[in-house]
Design a protein around this nucleic acid. Structure first.
Lengths: 132, 132
DNA sequence: GAAATAAATTAGAATTATTCCAATTCTTAT
DNA sequence: ATAAGAATTGGAATAATTCTAATTTATTTC
């Protein structure tokens, strides 16, 4: 594990947000001079393959990276908003079914967030036809 | 729901594979003349937001689309290979925890496929140092 | 059923994300 | 210190996706 990889792992692990490669790159630049975006991508890909970080893809956003502490995600199907949610650990339950090949699992719960719900409602009002 | 949207939904729903926007576009062209890739993207995004299809993002591939019949996915962390797997339905279990806002869930099981395991092994052999 | 309005689609440009590659720098072991 | 290997850089190339303005198609309304 190189110094850069280590720093990237640290940034991802300590961030409360879900950072994109670009964002991680910007944070790195704050402390280290002369890092290349390609290096960030290289190392993210390495860290991901090693199972040290996870990757989350959501409609309308670039891929983002997250720590591997056990937690799940709530994703708004409409605007892509992503939040953490702590659900029951299903590792055992799933391992029983999948077998030893399983390394980990990622669970996303789809929903429609309040903002989008509101927006939908007001839109459908908008196209209402008031006959009189 | 427009005719194009309907056709795209049908292609995604009936396909055994996990198709990308580009692939769906190519299938559409077989039957319909003068469809634009942008239309495919528009409609995929619409269908996704309506919850009529799901979207799967995997390392190293463009986003792909899938039907919403209850099933889960097995993803090789190394090469991105994606396969279907039918695990126990967790809807009730999760709904109890998440509440009524939940629309559906997506579960990905991470593992390392046989090919990648083999490749890893032979690589680590390669860098072995035989002292004598 | 023609005109007016709205919605969907097109083609292609623009943008963004990501990968690739050749040249350079840094490490490590000798 | 030097050679060999690995990691990184910077920028170009590619690929995916979005955007936009113009056009077509569908839907209302009279």
């Amino acid at each position: 594990m190189t110094k850069n990889a280590e720093q990237i792992l640290e940034i991802v692990t300590n961030s409360k947000e879900h950072l994109s490669a670009e964002q991680i790159f910007m944070r790195m630049k704050e402390t280290t001079k002369g890092v290349a975006l390609a290096t960030v991508y290289n190392n993210l890909s390495y860290l991901y393959k090693e199972g040290l970080i996870r990757k989350i893809s959501v409609e309308g956003y670039p891929d983002r990276y997250d720590n591997i502490r056990r937690h799940d995600h709530l994703v708004c199907r409409c605007c892509g908003k992503l939040s953490d949610i702590q659900l029951e650990d299903l590792t055992e339950l799933l391992q029983k079914q999948v077998g030893g090949a399983m390394l980990s699992y990622d669970l996303k719960i789809n929903y429609i967030c309040e903002d989008c719900k509101r927006k939908r409602d007001s839109e459908s009002e908008g196209i209402m036809h008031y006959e009189d």
